[in-house]
Amino acid sequence: MGLEDEFLTKKEVAKLLKVSEVTIYRWSKQGILKPIKIGKKVLFKRADIEKLLNESYKSTESE
């Protein structure tokens, strides 16, 4: 399983991004994060989270 195939739970994403699970829920509703629903589980691709972090870092660098 490669990095692009790894999935994280809402709790893991919240811990990684240092935000609350409520924030993860809001970002999902706003389209900032793209959740994948498998049955009742809501998961996030690690690659998508890494991309979000990289884009955020680049935008703060250019300011």
Rank of each mutant, 00 (worst) to 15 (best):
E63C: 00
I36K: 15
G39F: 12
E4I: 11
L17R: 04
M1F: 09
G2S: 15
A14K: 06
Q30K: 15
T23V: 09
L33I: 06
T23A: 09
N54Q: 14
D5M: 11
D48L: 03
P35G: 06
K18V: 11
E4R: 11
W27N: 04
E21A: 05
S59W: 11
S20L: 07
K45Q: 00
E6I: 15
Y25H: 12
N54K: 13
E12H: 01
L3Q: 11
K18Q: 10
E61S: 10
T60H: 05
T9A: 01
W27H: 03
A14L: 10
E55A: 14
L16Y: 05
Y57A: 13
K41H: 14
K51A: 03
F7T: 09
K51P: 03
V13Q: 02
L53W: 01
K11S: 07
F44I: 04
V19Q: 09
E50T: 01
G31K: 14
S56D: 08
L52R: 01
L3F: 13
V42E: 06
T60V: 05
L52M: 10
M1D: 03
K34Y: 10
G39C: 09
V42I: 12
V22I: 08
F7W: 12
V22N: 12
L17C: 02
F7M: 14
K37G: 05
L17Y: 01
I24L: 00
E4A: 08
K11D: 05
S59C: 06
D5Q: 14
F44P: 02
